[in-house]
C-alpha cells in the first residue's frame, strides 16, 4: 500500500521515515536506554540542511505567483525550523546527561517533526506543480471552446497552430506526472484519458475541416457535420476534465485500489 502518492516524495521520505520508526521502537523497547553518543555533529548537519531549505523555500515563495503556495509553504518551513530547534535542544541536553529521558523524547519529537514538516513542504510544492499542469489543461479547454466558432480555413489553420503546442505540453506534463504517481489506478486513468485526447485531436481537426468545406460549398449535411464536430470536441473536453480531476487526487482510496 503506497503511503506517498508520488515516487519523488516516496524516494526522499521513505528511508528517513523507516529510520525514525526504528528509533521509536528501539526507544520503547529499551525504556531507560543506553548512554547516547554525542549527537552534536549529526544535529549540526541537520541544522545546516534546514537553514539551506529555509533559504531555498523563501526564494521559491518570493518568485512564485501561486497564492496557495505562498500561503502554505511558510507554515511547512516553520514546522521544519521548530523541529530542528528541538534536535539542537535534545543534543545539548544529552551532552549534559547522556541518559536523559526527556532529551530522548525531544530527539524523537524533533526527528518526527523534521519528517512531518518536510512531508508538508513537499506536498505543498507538489500541489503547486500539479496546479501548473492543470493550468495547461485549462488552456486546451479554452481553445476547444473556440472550435465552435471557427468557420474559415484560415481560422482553422490558426486554431491548429495555437492548439498544437498546448496539447504537446499537456501531453508531456501529464505523461511525466503519470509516471511519477504511486497509485496504479490513478496512473491507468491518466494513461487512458491522455491516449483518448491524442486520438481525438486529429479527428477534431478533420471534423472541423469537413464542416468548413460543406459551409463553403453550401453543401448538404452541415448540421450533421456540426454535430459531429461538437461531439468530438465534447469528448475531448470530458477527457481533459477527467485528467484534471485525477491529477488532484492525492489520498489513497482503498476501494479503488482493491
Amino acid at each position: 500500500m503506497p503511503v506517498f502518492h508520488t515516487k519523488t516524495i516516496e524516494g526522499i521520505l521513505e528511508p528517513v521515515a523507516q529510520q525514525v520508526e526504528r528509533l521509536v521502537i528501539l526507544h520503547e523497547e529499551a525504556e531507560d536506554g543506553n548512554a547516547m553518543p554525542d549527537l552534536e555533529r549529526p544535529v549540526q548537519a541537520v541544522s545546516s540542511a534546514v537553514t539551506n531549505l529555509i533559504k531555498v523555500g523563501k526564494e521559491t515563495i518570493n518568485s512564485s505567483e501561486d497564492a496557495i503556495l505562498k500561503q502554505d509553504m511558510p507554515v511547512a518551513l516553520h514546522r521544519v525550523e521548530n523541529a530542528s530547534k528541538l534536535l539542537v535542544e535534545a543534543s545539548s541536553m544529552l551532552k549534559a546527561d547522556p541518559y536523559s529521558g526527556p532529551a530522548r523524547k525531544k530527539l524523537i519529537e524533533g526527528a518526527r517533526g523534521i519528517l512531518q514538516g518536510t512531508s508538508a513542504l513537499l506536498l505543498c510544492f507538489d500541489e503547486s506543480e500539479v496546479r501548473k499542469i492543470i493550468r495547461e489543461c485549462r488552456k486546451v479547454l479554452d481553445y476547444l471552446a473556440v472550435a465552435e466558432v471557427i468557420e474559415t480555413m484560415e481560422d482553422l489553420v490558426q486554431f491548429v497552430k495555437d492548439l498544437s503546442p498546448c496539447l504537446t505540453k499537456l501531453s508531456r506534463d501529464v505523461d511525466a506526472r503519470e509516471k511519477d504517481l504511486t497509485h496504479q489506478f490513478h496512473r491507468e486513468i491518466l494513461v487512458r484519458c491522455l491516449e483518448q485526447v491524442k486520438t481525438l485531436a486529429p479527428i477534431l481537426i478533420c471534423s472541423m475541416k469537413m464542416l468548413i468545406q460543406i459551409m463553403v460549398k453550401r453543401g448538404k449535411g452541415e448540421a450533421e457535420a456540426a454535430a459531429n464536430r461538437n461531439y468530438v470536441e465534447q469528448r475531448m473536453t470530458d477527457e481533459i476534465n477527467e485528467i484534471i480531476r485525477v491529477l488532484q487526487l492525492t489520498t489513497y482510496d482503498e476501494d479503488e485500489w482493491d
Binding site: V16, E29, P42, L53, T118
Partner: peptide, 29 residues
Amino acid sequence: EMILEACKSIAAATSALVKAASAAQRELV
C-alpha cells in the same frame, strides 16, 4: 528543483542522525 534537493539533504542528514541515535539503543535490545 532546488526545493527537492534541499529536502533530500535534510532527509539524508536526519537519517544519519537517527542512525547514530539508534546505534546506542540497539545494543540494549
